[in-house]
Structure formats: structure tokens, C-alpha cells
Design a protein around this nucleic acid. Structure first.
Lengths: 237, 237
DNA sequence: ACGCACACGTGAGGC
DNA sequence: TGCCTCACGTGTGCG
């Protein structure tokens, strides 16, 4: 019944691995969602299992651990969006999110009804509201000057945060084009910084995204710039 | 290792318990979240375990099974609320819910701003159609979401530097419009910073200009925003 | 073969 | 004590 005792080797490397999910957690109550991150080797299985099985087993364990970690990060990110949270249970987090979504949905319906009523009330303005407006159909007004990219880096900062650092030559409407590009990519920008030094434009922005989307994001930015510039592409990096 | 074979007694009562979570599920693909619902008694443990331990153990198993079932039901209910779902992963469900909540939040901000705008439009009769209407060459793709200015400060930092601090509600294309506006004013931007907090957008930029242009610059920005938003202006500061 | 996503049983820890 | 929630390792099934 109790033939497997590979637990509780946590205490030493716990303190250096506890910050690896990078959710800050200054308050120490309710600190589940990060009770993992110790990699035991799990060698020498009691029955004479061969080494290959042990290796694949270890991979499975690690993969499953990462999966649980991702799920908990997402759940915690979901919890961060809901304003009125009652309990920190996993089930309660999802329940509160459900209630909040329903509340937002009916509030949206109410607001839209109010808008329609107000629009009908003053019968002299013929404006129409088109709200959904997905991406990729708004950059039809590229005229001439392309974005000349000098450097592009995407690094993971932890805490579901990616830092994008872009350097390009400053010419007319470059910043405008970059903004257009960022909006088209639907990035969740936390903070953006821009510095102009002589004729160069240094742009640093922090984006809320999963850490594993790093390379994907870099490729997205590159292809977006390429698509923005048109058929001829002076990307040099 | 394989001393416990209490699986696969599902087939009879599966059909009457499958509808117990009350989510309809007419399509039969992706039907996880309901792979449980068999209550085995688990009596007569093979080793001579006492009856109390066996009973508490069985209760634990059953309770844990119910907990998992509740969690999956909630997750599935959450998934039912989100319109645009990509994958049926647990992690993807939570991710899509997160994106949807954020989208609903900014849409709510947009709609509330629209309501305020419409109410101002109802109260105020046309009186300011004498706006300078600069820029006008590139804003052919402005739909109808204006910049809702919450705060605007211009302070002199000395050394021919002015600091402009702008707060407005974050909605779609707000940053793009601000960039367009700044470019149209031909400002000599040294450094610009942008922070997004919930549904607000905080913008701070340092501009190379004479100190006596402070009030003039503030007026320029205000009138530019007014011109950008169109005839009706919901400036509240 | 390999990886991924899941449900399961189990022990630990908190009220 | 029992009840509840969680993380863990494991087995299974699918692409």
C-alpha cells in the first residue's frame, strides 16, 4: 500500500523555485496554485523496469507538472479579472467568473438598449455604431514610408509578461504605424515606452501574454511589419 | 500493481447519469467533462485492511470524484458562456474566458462613454462648429469612437522640456488616435510612456519645447482632441 | 513510436 | 475527529 515514498524533498529548493511561476504574492494567505516545481528524478523503480521506461515516465511526470502549472496560472489570471471574489477555491473562481460574465453580458445589453433609445430620442444624427470590428481590415491606408526595423527582441519577464524591444529609424508616421500594428495584433499592453535618440526610435513595451508565446509573438510582429511594409521588405534582422 | 479492477461498469447507468449535469451536449465529439458517474462500492479489499479505513478511503474517493465533477461542470458552464472558442482544452477554455472578459470590459467602457456622449449631445445644442480642423488629411479611417479625455496636464520641467500627462478611457484604437494626434501636432517627443490600468490609459510624454508654450500646448492638445472627436465633444475636464 | 490532455486514486494540510 | 481542497504520480486514449 505504501511502497512509494518519493515525496517531501521540497524544503531546500522550494525557496528558489517558488518564484519561478512569477506571480508575486506578497500576501501569504491563499498561496495555492504554486505548490509544485520540485523535480525528483524518480529513478530505481521497485520492479525491474528498464531505463527507457523510467525516462519516458519522468518526461510524463514533468509534462504533467507543467500542464498543471499552466492551468493554475490561467485560473489565477482569470481570478484577477473578476472584481468581486468570495472564496479562493478553484470552483469558486470559475463560478465567480461565470457570474461576472453573465453580469457583464446583461449590462452590455442594457447599455446598448439605452444607446438605441437615446439615438431614437434625438432623431437628427444619423450615426451608426459598428462595434465588433475584428482585426486585419483596417490597414488599407499605408502610403509610402515603411518601417525600417533595426532590432527586435522579445524576452520573457515572468509573471505572464513579455517585454518587446524594438528599434527602428525614426521617420514620419513611424510611431503611428507601430501603434496601428500593435492594435492589429490585439496585444494586451501593460506599459509602453518610447524614446527618440537622434534619428532612431527605441520602443519598449510590456505585454501580458503567456511565456510560451514568446517566439510566436516575435514572428507575429515580424510578419506584421513585413505585411505592413508591403511586398518589398527591408527587414535586416 | 494491478490488483484493483473496478472500472468499466459504466454502460448501464451511464445513460441515465450522463444528463445529470444538465448541459445538453447534442454533439458527441469532445465529450470530456463527464467521464465519471459510476459509484462502485469497493468492498472486500484484498489485503486485510480494517473496515473503518476502507470506508473512509471509499468516502475520500467518492468525495474527490464529486469535486472533480463539480469543477468540470463549472468549467463547462464557463465555456458555454464564451462565444468564440478555439480549442476545447481546459486551459484554452480559461484563456478564451479571460479574453472574453477583457473584451466585455472595454466594450462596457466604450458603451458607457457613448451614452455619456449621447446625453451630452441631447443636452447641448450645436454651438461649437468653429473648430480649426487641422489634420483632416489622414483621419479618413476614424469610425466613431472618440477619445474620452479624463485628465490633461502640461507642466514645465525646465531645460526646454514640457511634461504632458494624459488620462483617458481605454477603448479600441485610442492609442492609435493619440499617436495620430501627436504626429499632427508635430511635437518633438523626447520620451513617451503609456500604462494601461484596467480600462484607463495613462500617457506621459516629455516634449522639447519652450516653457512659455505650456498653456498654448495644452490648448492645442485640447482642440486637437476636440477636432478629432468631431463636432460633439465629451471633454469633461 | 512520441506527445498531449485527461480522469483517477492517494496522501497531505487546513478548518 | 471528519470534511474539504489541493498537488502529485500514474494509466489511458487519441492524434
Amino acid at each position: 500500500m505504501l511502497w512509494m515514498e518519493n515525496m517531501q524533498n521540497v524544503s531546500e529548493e522550494y525557496n528558489q523555485n517558488i518564484w519561478e511561476p512569477n506571480y508575486v504574492f506578497e500576501n501569504e494567505e491563499y498561496s495555492w496554485a504554486m505548490d509544485e516545481l520540485y523535480d525528483n528524478d524518480c529513478s530505481s523503480s521497485p520492479d525491474g523496469a528498464p531505463a527507457s521506461a523510467s525516462l519516458s515516465n519522468s518526461n510524463n511526470i514533468l509534462s504533467e507538472r507543467n500542464r498543471r502549472k499552466r492551468l493554475n496560472q490561467r485560473l489565477f489570471a482569470l481570478r484577477a479579472l473578476v472584481p468581486n471574489i468570495t472564496k479562493m477555491d478553484k470552483a469558486s473562481i470559475i463560478k465567480d467568473a461565470i457570474d461576472y460574465i453573465q453580469q457583464l453580458q446583461e449590462q452590455e445589453a442594457t447599455l446598448q438598449a439605452d444607446i438605441m433609445e437615446l439615438e431614437n430620442n434625438n432623431n437628427n444624427n444619423p450615426k451608426n455604431h459598428d462595434l465588433p470590428m475584428l482585426l486585419t481590415s483596417k490597414n488599407t491606408n499605408v502610403f509610402d514610408s515603411p518601417i525600417q526595423l533595426l532590432q527586435l527582441n522579445v524576452t520573457s519577464m515572468g509573471d505572464n509578461t513579455l517585454m518587446v524591444s524594438i528599434t527602428c529609424t525614426k521617420r514620419a508616421d513611424t510611431m503611428l504605424k507601430l501603434c496601428q500594428l500593435f492594435e492589429s495584433l490585439n496585444l494586451k499592453i501593460i506599459t509602453a515606452n518610447l524614446a527618440v535618440v537622434s534619428a532612431n526610435l527605441f520602443n519598449t513595451l510590456f505585454i501580458r501574454a503567456d511565456e510560451e508565446e514568446k517566439e510566436e509573438l516575435k514572428m507575429q510582429i515580424q510578419t506584421a511589419i513585413a505585411a505592413f511594409n508591403g511586398p518589398q521588405t527591408p527587414i535586416t534582422i
